[in-house]
């Protein structure tokens, strides 16, 4: 048996709001090996961030409610821990990087001290030792140690994101969750940060869950990909599985929506319509009304998991009837 850092089983989370119940996650299964990187791809409202927060048990309650399911992180059942134990787990076993580097740092505390604080909380080091370690981590992410004494506003966006990565890495977590870590950055800066993350990941043999809406970013850093839609993982597999042997119509739609930089004449084929109202998900497949392959059964019955290999599965009715089915048009070159 393989050694898993993260195992999520049948996770259901809903938000109870005044307007009604939002079914944010409807049965998520994720297993992640140590040292591997999983890309979590989906559009706004697909449930990516809720999944990430649930691993840290940071889904706000209320309105959030875990209906059922289990999360096992590094052998620890997260749902059964006390809040005190969770505080120890956060930062030490699992760390999170948020999207917006502009608001994630405290503007009135020096950068070095912010990193040192994270270190001293978890490692019980003296102030001098934490500061020395902070300098080390800062240099690790490519920022000269003498900039420890500066305040966040003196840093550019890319550097702030490096500082946040430094804080997340300061206690050498076994799992790093990165929520759109480069979305707010410019392309050239994004390239720098992604490069850095790849390097660090290897150096520390750290597992990572990378949330992104950008398949390009995912292709660059991830080993496995999970495509989310309306609180479900509709397709999951290795990078090759999902990119070369695309099975789910939604995944195909995503690929066809991206302008291809190497072929400017290629036509964009958007996915029609909009994501279903999260207050009122259809009883069948949530992608039903946007799907070009929809059949009668898709309207009424929820699709179940269909595996193609140990790693690759999709939730789609197309393959229950005809396992040999293949999607008609995939624009991206192989």
């Amino acid at each position: 048996m393989k050694d898993h850092i993260l195992e999520i089983k049948d996770l259901h989370i809903q938000f109870n709001t005044d307007e009604g119940v939002v079914q944010a996650l409807n049965g998520i299964d994720i297993t992640l090996e140590r040292g591997k990187t999983l890309g979590l791809v989906g559009e706004t409202g697909a449930g990516k961030t809720t999944t990430a927060l649930s691993i840290l048990r940071l889904v706000p309650r209320p309105p959030g409610e875990v209906v059922r399911g289990s999360i096992i992180l590094d052998g620890i059942p997260i749902m059964e821990q006390s809040e005190y134990e969770m505080e120890k787990i956060r930062g030490k076993t699992v760390s999170m990087i948020f999207q917006d580097p502009m608001t994630a740092l405290n503007p009135v505390i020096k950068v070095g001290e912010q990193i040192a604080e994270a270190i001293s909380i978890h490692q019980k080091l003296s102030k001098e030792k934490s500061l020395a370690k902070a300098r080390e981590v800062l240099e690790l992410v490519g920022i000269p140690g003498n900039r420890m004494q500066e305040y966040p506003h003196q840093f550019s966006g890319g550097m702030k994101q490096r500082v946040i990565i430094a804080i997340a890495l300061s206690c050498s977590p076994k799992l790093l969750i990165a929520d759109e870590p480069t979305t707010a950055l410019d392309v050239t800066i994004q390239a720098q940060v992604l490069e850095l993350m790849k390097e660090l990941k290897q150096k520390f043999h750290m597992a990572m869950v990378m949330i992104s809406h950008d398949l390009g970013v995912v292709a660059e850093v991830c080993d496995d990909v999970a495509i989310m839609y309306a609180g479900k993982i509709v397709e999951q597999g290795s990078l090759e599985d999902v990119f070369l042997r695309t099975k789910h119509p939604y995944t195909e739609g995503l690929f066809n929506s991206i302008p291809n930089i190497d072929d400017r004449k290629a036509e964009l084929i958007p996915i029609r319509g909009l994501m279903s109202d999260p207050y009122n998900l259809p009883s069948g497949c949530p992608f039903f009304d946007r799907c070009d392959y929809a059949m009668d059964i898709c309207r009424t019955e929820k699709p179940v998991k269909h595996s193609f290999s140990d790693t690759h599965f999709t939730e789609c009715h197309l393959y229950t009837a005809q396992p040999e089915f293949s999607l008609k048009s995939k624009k991206t070159k192989e």
Binding site: A191, A219, L244, K333
Partner: peptide, 8 residues
């Protein structure tokens, strides 16, 4: 060159 491309 910095654009992440959705290919392998």
């Amino acid at each position: 060159s910095a654009i992440p491309r959705p290919t392998l």
